[in-house]
Each structure stands twice: as structure tokens, then as C-alpha cells.
Design a protein around this nucleic acid. Structure first.
Length: 328
DNA sequence: ACGGTCAACAAGATCT
DNA sequence: AGATCTTGTTGACCGT
């Protein structure tokens, strides 16, 4: 049980118990030169080298406290001499701090040596180190907490930006889907009417390719709509070569090969279930309107290694960019 | 008076 | 088993 100790020493006694006892003319001179009572302890500098914690000092130092004479060893004899709790002097703390910086653990020999150097009981030195480690740990925890907090805030901001970007892209996909559906309907209507009007037998043989020949130039007919789509129809092998972001991110759904390792289940290990579902939903949405048609291939420039300016990848290290790129 | 800091301690865990 | 560590607590001291 801590506490419960009775401190009976006088204030005067308390003031001097931890202060060094000058035991040489040199030290006494230094003590006298130091002036005020509070700074009298600085006389100890004459004997203890505070610049280097590893420097050995003479066997007997000026830190020899009164209590040692008064109470002897701090053994657990159960008869503790009533003593006032007193603080270590600034020099003692400074010396201990320097030693703590060198090594925050205390080997027995070092403890004894330090106690000797400082004129303290070895137990006092041990307790000081224990408390110092506890303080250090508290500080460290505070630092870690702050660091994690800023990191969390940064990631949260990124996440929010990416969500916004995702919503924007989804809206874009919807617009494009509607445009494609509208285009299909007008094409069907026109082919039906022309069939009935002209009854040309081979006009339907190019059913799958009119887009290639009529839409690519974007100049005639429903060109405005098709320009908005901004796609270049290409052959199947071109699609599988996959520079297109849109294509690759959904290729497992579109191709039966599922060759894109980027979308292997293992690569989704970092995604939450909800995110996976969301990604699936987007993929299905794309698939629902792209499957009946030739898959659009983006221009080469559209898939440059440089991410779009609003991609919010700035918070990730370079090696993680592939991850952010595919996650959303 | 009050709250913060610090030396000192206790109890339990861990190490050697 | 004993030393040392971690964690939590107590009471003295000190600044406001």
C-alpha cells in the first residue's frame, strides 16, 4: 500500500537533506560562490561531470545526503525514520536525465554507481528511473495518439473526396447509359422502317457494325450524341489488351476469362463488404448497357499513368497508387 | 483551495 | 527465487 508514511522532519531539514555536503575546500568555495540557497547545489558541478553521463566520478561525491547518515540503508527494517518527502535537486535530475537518454534501463552496477555519484540511495535512483519511464511512455502515447489522429483525418478527407468522385462518375455512367439506349431505339426504328420501305435484303447484314462506319467521324446524323459518348469501337483483341480504365475495372464481368488479376478476390481483401457490393453494382450497371454493344475503348491518352487531378492519391505512397486506382 | 507534478510505494507481471 | 518492470496510487510540494 502506498502512502501512509509519516513525515516528521522540519522544513529546514527538508531543505538540506538532498543538498550536497561540501567536503573539500574547492567544493565549499564553489558553494559559497553560488550565492542563493536554491542554487547552492550547483557546487556539485565541481565534482560531477554533468556534460557526459558516462564519465566516472570519484567514489565519494558531494551528493552524499544527510539521510544516509540518519537512516542508514533503506532496508525494509520496518522502522523507517520519519522523513519529509523532498524533491531531487535540479542537478541531480539533470544528471539522471542525461543517463536516461543514454539508456532508459538500469543495470544494478549502473544504479549503484549513479546513486554513489548523486549521493542518493540506489533505491531512489531505481524509483526515479521507473517514474521516468512511466512519464516517457505517457508522452509517447500522447504523441502516437496525435499522429494517428492526423493520419485518420487525412484518410477521412481522402475517403470523402473519393466518394464524391465516385458519385460523379456514377452519374456520368447513367447519362451515357441513357444515351446508348436512346440510340439503340432510334436505330431499331429506322432499320424497321427502311426495311419496310425499300425491302433491301442485305441491309441487315451489318447489324453489328453500323456504328463503326457511320459514327466514327461524328459528323453526320446523330453525331452529337455519339460525340458525347466519345468512344472508339474496337475489336475484341484490342479490348483485352486493356489500357482502358473502364474496361479493366470490369473485365471479369465482361470477359469469361476473368484474366484481370487486379480484380481477383484476393485483391479485394482490403475492401469492406459494402465496398465490394458497391463495386459489383457499378460493374453490373456498366455491363447492363455495354454487353449488347461493342465495348468502348478510351483513347490512349485517357489512361496515362498520371492519375486524374481529382483522384486524391496524394495521401498514398507511390507503391499504393495501383490500389487507390482500382479500389473505387 | 485547487490542480499539477513528482518521489515513493505496492501489487502483480515478467525476466533471468 | 529474486530482481526488475509496469501500472496505479498516495501524499508532499508548488504555482495559481
Amino acid at each position: 500500500m502506498a502512502g501512509g508514511r509519516v513525515y516528521g522532519a522540519s522544513n529546514m531539514n527538508m531543505l538540506f537533506q538532498n543538498q550536497p555536503i561540501p567536503c573539500s575546500a574547492q567544493a565549499l568555495e564553489a558553494l559559497l560562490a553560488s550565492g542563493s540557497s536554491s542554487s547552492a547545489i550547483h557546487a556539485t558541478r565541481t565534482m560531477v561531470n554533468f556534460e557526459d553521463p558516462r564519465v566516472k566520478v570519484p567514489e565519494r561525491t558531494f551528493f552524499q545526503p544527510l539521510e544516509q547518515e540518519e537512516t542508514g540503508d533503506d532496508g525494509d527494517d520496518g522502522f523507517h525514520q520519519p522523513e519529509k518527502k523532498r524533491r531531487l535537486t535540479a542537478d541531480q535530475v539533470q544528471f539522471l536525465e542525461r543517463n536516461f537518454e543514454v539508456e532508459n534501463k538500469l543495470e544494478p552496477e549502473r544504479k549503484v554507481q549513479l546513486a554513489k555519484d548523486l549521493g542518493l540511495q540506489p533505491r531512489q535512483v531505481a524509483i526515479w528511473f521507473q517514474n521516468r519511464r512511466a512519464r516517457w511512455k505517457t508522452k509517447q502515447l500522447e504523441k502516437d495518439y496525435e499522429s494517428l489522429k492526423t493520419s485518420y483525418n487525412s484518410l477521412k478527407a481522402d475517403h470523402e473526396n473519393l466518394l464524391k468522385e465516385k458519385e460523379k462518375l456514377k452519374a456520368e455512367v447513367n447519362v451515357l447509359t441513357e444515351k446508348l439506349l436512346a440510340k439503340d431505339k432510334t436505330r431499331e426504328n429506322s432499320s424497321e422502317s427502311s426495311e419496310l420501305a425499300t425491302k433491301k435484303p442485305d441491309s441487315g447484314s451489318d447489324d453489328e457494325t453500323p456504328v463503326e462506319n457511320t459514327d466514327d467521324d461524328g459528323g453526320g446524323g446523330a453525331g452529337v450524341k455519339h460525340q458525347a459518348v466519345a468512344m472508339v469501337v474496337c475489336k475484341q483483341e484490342d479490348l483485352s489488351s486493356g489500357d482502358s480504365v473502364v474496361f479493366d475495372s470490369d473485365s471479369p464481368h465482361y470477359t469469361d476469362g476473368g484474366h484481370s488479376s487486379l480484380l481477383d478476390p484476393a485483391d479485394h481483401s482490403d475492401l469492406s463488404h459494402a465496398e465490394e457490393e458497391e463495386a459489383d453494382h457499378v460493374s453490373r450497371t456498366l455491363l447492363s448497357f455495354t454487353a449488347p454493344h461493342h465495348f468502348p475503348k478510351l483513347e490512349e491518352g485517357a489512361c496515362a499513368a498520371v492519375p486524374p487531378p481529382n483522384s486524391c492519391n496524394y495521401a498514398y505512397p507511390v507503391e499504393d497508387q495501383a490500389f487507390w486506382f482500382w479500389q473505387y
